[in-house]
Design a protein around this nucleic acid. Sequence first.
DNA 1: GTGAAAGCGCTAACAG
DNA 2: CTGTTAGCGCTTTCAC
Lengths: 335, 335
Amino acid sequence: MIARRTTIKDVAEAAGVGVATVSRVLSGGSASAETRERVLDAATRLDYRPSALGRNLRQQRAGGIALLVPDITDTFYARLADGVLSCARSYREPVTIGVTGDDPEQEADLVGALLEQGIDRVIAVPSGDVETWSPALKAGLSVVFADRRIWDAGRLIDEIPAVIADDRAGVRTAVEYLLGLGHRRIAFLARHGQSQRVASFREAMGEHLDEELVAHARASRDSAYATAAGLLQRRTDLTAVLAGGNVLGEATVSAARELDLRIPRDLSLIMFDDVPWAELCSPPLTVIAQPAQDLGYRAAELTLRQGRRPRTIQLPTELIIRGSCGPRRPGSSGH
Amino acid sequence: MIARRTTIKDVAEAAGVGVATVSRVLSGGSASAETRERVLDAATRLDYRPSALGRNLRQQRAGGIALLVPDITDTFYARLADGVLSCARSYREPVTIGVTGDDPEQEADLVGALLEQGIDRVIAVPSGDVETWSPALKAGLSVVFADRRIWDAGRLIDEIPAVIADDRAGVRTAVEYLLGLGHRRIAFLARHGQSQRVASFREAMGEHLDEELVAHARASRDSAYATAAGLLQRRTDLTAVLAGGNVLGEATVSAARELDLRIPRDLSLIMFDDVPWAELCSPPLTVIAQPAQDLGYRAAELTLRQGRRPRTIQLPTELIIRGSCGPRRPGSSGH
DNA sequence: GTGAAAGCGCTAACAG
DNA sequence: CTGTTAGCGCTTTCAC
């Protein structure tokens, strides 16, 4: 026979008080020292664990927060998730994770599911745009974005709190580094939706910008590879690539190998996001490190901490120079 | 003003029926065709979403499942999680993720938190042993293990359903491959708790086993590196390493580089678990691939599907030969 | 086939 | 400071 869970009523009885008193004591309300002691003692003796079920229904909201990421197998998002988890842990809040596959429709679906669950706080790396997120906001969801923000017809939505990396500085530093090495035909390999980074790239490249060297891939590994390979084959004159994320970087390395391009001799490469294998790659990859874990941690703080929340938090990036960039070889106009 | 959520009562009124009928219709119970139609129509018109909160309290259990992994930033567990998420998705069940850090105490904590939340189904990559998990079972938790099983004083607990990779075959294949290449001094770099793999290694090595070549690391990257470096320095006579996981493999590559050991010339390496960077590494790493995603998917199926559940599901591993193993160089007794 | 009503465990409003 | 009570939204007897 399975013992029925101990409820607040049992504790009240055991302590010889009313249920309200137990509730108050346990949630830090006021009570006389003696009553408090009796209640606490009874609770301990009976090994009482308040049921979140009852509380949730009463409060009309489930505890905990949700995290929506495009892909949990991408190290970057995994580290971001780790940050969220680690912060949520200290608040003792459970975290429900959903994977959107970078698809606005799935994202909207998941938001719907959250609402149904009564979860009303969500941290998201958004894939959709205003159309996806306005309804969520209207439904009373408290949203914090991480890593990305959303746009409405070209206008940045900055009313929703967000924690993002300083893309602009990251891109600028990387581009300046490459320009300093003599590169001019520099490509940017972006994921669809990285409009911020693309814009920063255009800005940083200035007069050297060649619009044809800005390539867009979908979020999948396959699309990343196809796009990288296509770019490298189509434009044999390019001498450097800036990859907008670790999957794109990986794809570039693979494609370069396949085409027998040597890094950094034939091609310089800078990748967004520092991942463990960047050091193991040969040559070790020069990267723009992003504070992935911190992005998540801070977003969770914003979500969980009461009171005033700043609009947008921007965290610094850092160019880590390893071995994947070399000077443009004089006399060579490409690979 | 925020509109109150539509409840089952609203639907009942709109359809001119009782709440019980609405509940029945919506959960597929019996009702006359006409009533059903009226209810469904009203529900659609009012955009009714049943509240999980109410249902949960009534049923005395939260929907959804929990997933406990040692470390979500480890690609292997991330892929396993992805499998769980993907299966749970098709059942429309939310997934709460917890990170144990490979620490039985944290694990027990998390289990306690789950119980409090009313979540009674959990998939775990367990870190603890019977002491951690018996109480959970007693508390009515339905547990499925993934990737690992637990031991009680040396005895394997096989009463709890589990989905695991066929370690034994994996280790055997790898060891035979190395022996075939002429290696004799083969080390196994294990994480604490990988008793199954270690046992298989001992068995496969047979007479060639050198107990001092079995090294144990804790779960962290740092510990992995320290252990790998220590092993490589202490035993300059070893010619091959089998790493029990991708973090350990990474550590071995780093340590070998640091010590100026060339792979595969001075040292052959096989790593458990195929990860994207294994191919990018130079040389590309020979690995024992494990069906990480499938491990998670099947575990979720076991958890979510009603009825009979088999005890243990074992999934095959595969030796993927790339470039990190070479013949033992004749005349050399080590590096 | 259908409706009325009880009650899951908790918190908050209110009365004492 | 403390106890009584209502009620959150739902499912499930039970009676009709």
